[in-house]
């Protein structure tokens, strides 16, 4: 096994473990803990991106997700001043049916992935590099219109957020 394979297993295990701790943390039900583990999940996922040679996306993942989005999350958590989620009685029926449906979805997806041998059969050894230059070229050559529409979307989101957080929301 090459060093990259070891790194894949390390980062994958970290991602899944931290993702699990976001959802079910046996020690704390505080949303701040979940947010911190989400940061760890995102950072280790950026490691997986680097292993996939998507260098620009790894940087964007850390800058935008671990930086901006998570700061926004923590800011809102502090703003709301949530009490620690008290232990409400868990409805067993809801939990079991939920778990069953999640396992069903997982089973369907895994079956599709693993049974279909075409997935790995005719793939040539990968050569692409997702650097800034390659991605920028394709972004501004083939995807210029979606890029501009995206800037409009961000403007709309900004106006919407300002409107929503006005004091006297009708």
């Amino acid at each position: 096994m090459a060093a990259q394979d070891y790194l894949f297993y390390i980062f994958a295990a970290l991602t899944l473990l931290c993702g699990l701790l976001v959802v079910v943390n046996p020690f704390s039900r505080n949303p701040v803990t979940s947010a911190m583990f989400l940061v760890l999940t995102i950072v280790s996922m950026a490691g997986l991106f680097v292993l996939l040679h998507a260098f620009f996306l790894a940087a964007v993942q850390i800058l935008v997700y671990a930086g901006a989005v998570m700061v926004l999350f923590l800011f809102v958590i502090m703003l709301l001043d949530l009490k620690e989620e008290e232990r409400r009685k868990i409805r067993l029926f809801g939990l079991i049916t939920g778990l069953l449906s999640v396992l069903a979805v997982l089973g369907v997806v895994l079956k599709t992935y693993l049974v279909d041998s075409r997935l790995s059969a005719n793939l040539q050894p990968p050569t692409i590099e997702g650097g800034t230059a390659a991605l920028g070229t394709i972004l501004f050559k083939n995807y210029l219109l979606p890029f501009e529409i995206l800037s409009l979307l961000l403007l709309v989101a900004m106006v919407g957020v300002i409107l929503l957080s006005k004091k006297d929301l009708k």
Partner: peptide, 15 residues
């Protein structure tokens, strides 16, 4: 599936 489990099982809106 972990994310889906969180959406189904957790009760806090932020989580």
């Amino acid at each position: 599936s972990l994310g889906l489990l969180g959406v189904i099982a957790r009760r806090n809106l932020l989580v």
